[in-house]
Amino acid sequence: MSVQSYLFFEGRADEAIAFYGKALDAEVLMRMTYGDGPGGQCPDGSTPPADKVMHASLHIGGTEVGLSDGMCSGKPEFKGFSLTLVCADDAEAKRRFDALADGGQVNVPLGESFFATSFGMLTDRFGVDWMVMVPKAPAG
């Protein structure tokens, strides 16, 4: 069993796919538009623009993240959660943190903490909250 994140970008999914491809080396596993579906309709019977993303899947590191344009309202809302990016080393953490912060907002600058050699929090340009970290090795 696994739990995967699924994000609704409300009309900005292709922009998000390109951004995460650059910032996180995300690989597109699949991308389907509403026009690819039967009759171009959603399960609820609505018909969003045919070129918008009904479903896409990105491979980021060892994780799969699903995403969609949703109902294309133009107003994505991501509340009550953060995605955590665990990096191999401090240099990677800085590179990924800076890339994700481009066009977004840094909430906690990247730096050392009692539990990580690097830890920082940001909200990216789409409103998705991220925690970027390199955990400290457990005391042994």
Rank of each mutant, 00 (worst) to 15 (best):
A137E: 15
D14E: 15
L24C: 12
G40C: 06
K52A: 06
G62I: 10
K94W: 11
A56Q: 06
G21P: 02
A116L: 10
P135M: 15
K52T: 12
A50H: 05
V3R: 11
F81D: 04
D129I: 00
A26S: 10
P48F: 10
F115P: 04
Q105W: 11
F119D: 04
L85H: 04
K79L: 12
R12W: 03
A50L: 06
E77C: 02
Y34H: 12
G11S: 12
K94V: 06
F97N: 00
G37I: 01
M1N: 10
V86E: 11
F114M: 08
D98A: 07
D51Y: 01
A99V: 00
C72V: 07
P38I: 01
M32R: 13
M121H: 12
E112H: 09
S46G: 10
G11N: 03
M71A: 11
F115Y: 15
D89P: 09
V132K: 08
F119Q: 02
F97Y: 11
T117G: 14
F9S: 12
G104P: 13
F78S: 09
L83E: 01
S57K: 13
F19Y: 15
R96W: 01
T63D: 11
D44N: 15
Y20A: 11
F8N: 15
D44L: 07
T123S: 04
T117N: 13
D14C: 05
A18D: 09
R96S: 11
A23P: 11
R12C: 07
P49H: 04
D25K: 14
A93R: 02
D69G: 07
K79R: 15
M32H: 10
Q4F: 05
G21K: 00
K52C: 07
D90E: 15
S5V: 01
A137Q: 11
G40A: 03
V28G: 12
V134F: 00
G45Y: 08
C87I: 01
D14I: 04
F126G: 00
H55T: 03
